[in-house]
Nucleic acid binder design. Structure first.
Lengths: 333, 333
DNA sequence: AACGTAGTAGAAACCAATTACTACGTGTGT
DNA sequence: ACACACGTAGTAATTGGTTTCTACTACGTT
């Protein structure tokens, strides 16, 4: 079919072992032979076959990453830094998207197992316990996002929502806001629940009554409806903390649509610092979760787990940072 | 190491060939044996090894997709539909991101060759002619995006920018706009150049003088600067056609910042229908390029090329559609 | 001159599947 | 009763590498 290591060996009049040793820099080959092999490789346009490589060498250098939705602006940056780090560590990275569908999550996990990955970062919550056990049984390292307790082969990446939400609430408080509403996401999602709790805690810490909590859906539409509803509240909150940026955008549009000015009449904040937050008008006050760090740490975590004899799962913390935009300002009161 | 086909064969007291035949549904195995094998597979938790599979079977079922930047909101949807279609056709899909870097483009292409893909969709313009030839020499099918002439192993996916831009210009014209500016992208990028030309042609077709053309950079910043500059022009255009959505957002912010109201004083349009366009405030009048179609067609094109004996590259057309948002309206004059 | 020792290269087993080919038993047609 | 075909399952070669173990060469030492 294509050029193989045998063809190179024949053309250079050496053995396949020698060619392999040259290509893997084992340092077992003399300068002259090495040069000869390399030039032959170039001349013949030889390219290694990953499949044959992985099959023959017992340690398989692939990491996987499973995300719920590549179209969710949160993920691309994470994926990118994961891949970059994986490559730096000498791994090939493969990606699967589950589209929030448990069946596809199972397929994705199966794909990872078929590829014999050393580890997989699972960044979706639609995953069954059975699947998790199956991965553990096969000794595949796993890095979860805000999900699992740490165990032998599993580490967890924990985003510090608490601190992020607290920064937002404190900032609003400093700007004179006392009546602050919250627009939630999905009740089933741990990261969403945590944000809500963090909101309630932060409010209480400041001696404020946690204001109305509205139901959202993590999407624009839910935010829009919540915004419309908030506009009609009486007394109307002077600030709204939304569970994520997209919801915040929806809230803002809902408010504007109902005749409220943002931020003059009411301040709105988001979460995640997506591009949306930056480019919207007004730009959104939000919290930057260090996604680049998240992706990198995921790869690091998997590398560490899979290169230890008796691995010990760890918990990693991803910090977050307040970013002030144009959607918030001093309280009108 | 893990459970192999041999273990399954031994446990079921059949040969590996039989197990393989069951797993591949070749129809060469009797009902009873088949049932026995399947239950053994389940009992042992056997999972096939892609690498061994690909190595042993001569036809390798992998397709690749190379994009310039997964963070560019244009791509995730394309990638998703590409993967879905690839899976439907029985391929495994792998993704590489080049980050607009020619060196990484080369690495990405090498990765594809190492994986022995049957075909690769190249959705970046940072690709050297040498690389293209190398792929052709290896008989790897290629689907380009707005790039290459069609040849034996290469097809091209052509986005119909002309029609898209024409729809925009005509729409603005119908709304009374006569003085319409254009904010360009990168001069080197074919898709950008085409949009500019389409703008000029459409204007002339309507008997209008192509207005001022400003330089952008495809990013927010370039749009912002252009918006600021346009606000100062005299006479000021009543509409601005931006090369893409992000630029349009920048333009709008630049205009607002300079005291122009959008769309009351000046209409702005984008291109690509990213989420940004939808969620921004005002939402942006833009052109929807059918990305889902693009990804699907790319997979189809590769499948077709790579399963023909003497392949004949084709040109596929991706249509586009005007989407009216809040950033445009009737001319103030 | 005999011997030990690096350093280098080769032969061959092995990885986990696929698949062409072979063998076997059974049923059918003449 | 014999030959033939067919359906089913097994044998073994094959895929393109890695890696272990062995063998050879050249050189310095005694």
């Amino acid at each position: 079919m294509s050029v193989t290591i045998r063809d190179v060996a024949k053309a250079a009049a050496v053995s396949t072992a020698t060619v392999s040793n040259v290509l893997n820099n084992t340092g077992k080959v003399g300068r002259e032979t090495r040069r000869l092999v390399l030039s032959t490789v170039r001349k013949l346009g030889y390219i290694r076959d990953v499949h044959a490589r992985h099959l023959a060498s017992h340690d398989r250098r692939t990491l996987g990453i499973i995300v719920s939705d590549i179209e969710n602006p949160f993920f691309p940056e994470v994926i990118k830094s994961f891949e970059i780090r994986a490559r730096q560590l000498g791994y090939d990275a493969i990606l699967s998207d589950t589209n929030y569908d448990p069946r596809r999550t199972r397929q994705a996990a199966e794909r990872m197992m078929e590829h014999k990955v050393r580890g997989v970062a699972i960044m979706t919550s639609e995953i069954s316990l059975r699947l998790v056990h199956e991965l553990a049984r096969r000794k595949i390292a796993v890095a979860f996002l805000d999900l699992a307790p740490v165990q032998g082969y599993m580490s967890n990446l924990r985003i510090d929502y608490l601190s992020g939400v607290e920064q937002i609430v404190n900032y609003l408080h400093e700007n004179g806001h006392r009546h602050i509403a919250f627009v939630a996401g999905r009740p089933g999602l741990k990261s969403n629940v945590e944000r809500l709790q963090a909101y309630e805690n932060s409010m209480k810490k400041l001696g404020l009554e946690p204001g109305p909590v509205l139901r959202g859906d993590l999407r624009f539409e839910g935010g829009f409806a919540a915004g419309a509803a908030i506009a009609k509240l009486s007394p109307r909150p002077t600030a709204v903390v939304a569970v994520n940026d997209l919801t915040a955008v929806g809230v803002i549009k809902g408010l504007l649509n109902a005749g409220c000015r943002v931020p003059q009449d009411i301040s709105v904040t988001g979460f995640d610092k997506t591009r949306l937050a930056e480019y919207c008008n007004p730009s959104i006050t939000t919290v930057d979760i260090h996604r680049e760090t998240l992706g990198r740490l995921a790869a690091d975590a998997l590398h560490e787990l899979s290169s230890t004899v008796s691995p010990q799962g760890k918990e990693y913390r991803i910090s977050s940072e307040l970013v002030i935009g144009g959607s918030s300002g001093p309280s009108p009161q």
